[in-house]
Computed example of a mutant assay.
Amino acid sequence: MTAGTGEPVTDRGAGPKAPSARTLARRRRRASAARFWREYRTHRAGLVGLAALALFALAALTAPLTVGSDVSSVTGAPGQPLETPSGEFWLGTDRFGRDLLGLVVWGSRVSLLVGLLAAALSVAIGTLVGITAGHFKGAYATVVMRITDWFLVMPTLVLAIALATVMSRSLATVVLAIGVTSWPTTARLVRAQTLAVEARPYIERARALGGGHRHIMVRHVLPNVMPLVLAQTTLMISSSILAEATLAFLGLGDPTVVSWGGLLQDAREAGSVSSGNWSYLVPPGLAIAGVALAFTLCGRAVESVLNPRLGVAR
């Protein structure tokens, strides 16, 4: 207090207030993201894949504006069945007289959505199983990893077909069938990384300071396995899109929606192979191959950035 005034004494020589822990965390995240992007840009194949994915995503998001939401309607189709490519219909028409180009663009919405959701479900299950099996060990880990081994030796597509057959035909069924049958690879990878992380000294210090199982798994293990999970997710999306196309081609998808696999099934039923109508078969097939390749290129680039020892070609 100053004499006679009663005002508090302030330290005019004090410097600026130190940033909070939350501010420092945001700065570190921004710096990490910028460093990741600088490394990612050095991978030419990854940039090509990212550009292709941007085009596919743009086509899917703008489909209601570019081709219209009624493009999949069978009633009132604008053309005649199985027309050849022309100025009016660039890819021709399907067996109902619908514009094939519009159907391919509209089908990207379903194929990408199912691929993303199925991959997210698969990676989530695999991450949960991998972290818990690597952390708890003992009898729990033995039982869980034996179940994982059983899923690994069983053909994923056969299991997905079995699930899709006994359940109702819908997009949710396809997502569930793919997600619950393709997680074992992620679980194996995450468990191995979890074991490596928990062997580090700071995990022992966390336990000594009273850190419980949840604290160690969420605050220490999960952040260290997230780079692996991110790379695995980008690779799983391409596999999920291919699996969705296969199920739809076999007639196990949702018959009320348009997808690339469903278009291939329609082309097969219309006899496009025997009649040589390749404009019906090739576009959805190329779309499936293109988006799967794009996600694979991005996944390999991400994997190389997060783990430079892999030495992936740039």
Results as ranks from 00 to 15, higher is better:
Gly211Cys: 02
Leu230Asp: 04
Asp149Ser: 12
Ser239Asp: 11
Leu252Lys: 12
Phe136Tyr: 15
Gln193Cys: 04
Ala120Pro: 01
Thr148Ala: 14
Met145Gln: 10
Ser239Phe: 12
Met236Ile: 11
Ala243Ile: 04
Glu198Met: 13
Ser170Tyr: 06
Gly212Cys: 06
Ala118Trp: 00
Leu152Ile: 14
Ala160Gly: 15
Leu121Gln: 12
Thr132Glu: 13
Val129Asn: 08
Leu228Glu: 07
His220Trp: 01
Gly251Gln: 10
Tyr202Lys: 06
Val221Ser: 13
His220Met: 03
Val257Pro: 02
Gly138Ile: 00
Thr173Cys: 04
Leu176Trp: 11
Leu159Asp: 04
Val221Arg: 02
Leu171Gln: 12
Glu198Gly: 13
Thr142Val: 12
Val158Cys: 07
Glu204Gln: 13
Ala120Lys: 00
Gly211Ile: 10
Gly115Cys: 07
Val123Asp: 05
Gly261Leu: 13
Leu163Gly: 01
Gly115His: 00
Ile237Cys: 10
Asn224Gln: 13
Leu152Tyr: 11
Gly126Ala: 06
Ala162Ile: 11
Pro184Tyr: 00
Leu222Gln: 12
Ala243Val: 03
Ser239Glu: 07
Ile147Gly: 12
Lys137Leu: 13
Gly115Ala: 05
Ala160Asn: 07
Met217Gly: 05
Pro255Phe: 03
Ile237Pro: 00
Ala196Gly: 08
Ala208Gly: 13
Gly262Arg: 10
Gly262His: 05
Asp149Arg: 08
Ala231Pro: 00
Ala245Asn: 10
Leu128Ile: 14
Met226Glu: 05
Ala162Met: 15
Ala120Ser: 15
Phe136Arg: 14
Ser239Ile: 09
Val123Asn: 02
Ile147Ala: 14
Leu228Tyr: 02
Ser170Lys: 11
Gly262Gln: 09
Thr234Leu: 15
Thr194Pro: 03
Pro255Thr: 12
Val257Arg: 02
Leu171Met: 14
Val225Asn: 02
Thr127Ala: 09
Ile178His: 04
Arg214Val: 13
Val153Asp: 04
Ser122Glu: 11
Leu117Phe: 07
Gly179Cys: 05
Gly210Gln: 07
Gly130Gln: 06
Gly261Gln: 06
Thr132Arg: 08
Pro184Thr: 13
Trp150Gly: 15
Leu222Pro: 07
Pro223Val: 13
Ala139Ile: 11
Pro223Ile: 10
Ala177Val: 07
Ile131Thr: 10
Arg200Glu: 14
Ser182Ile: 10
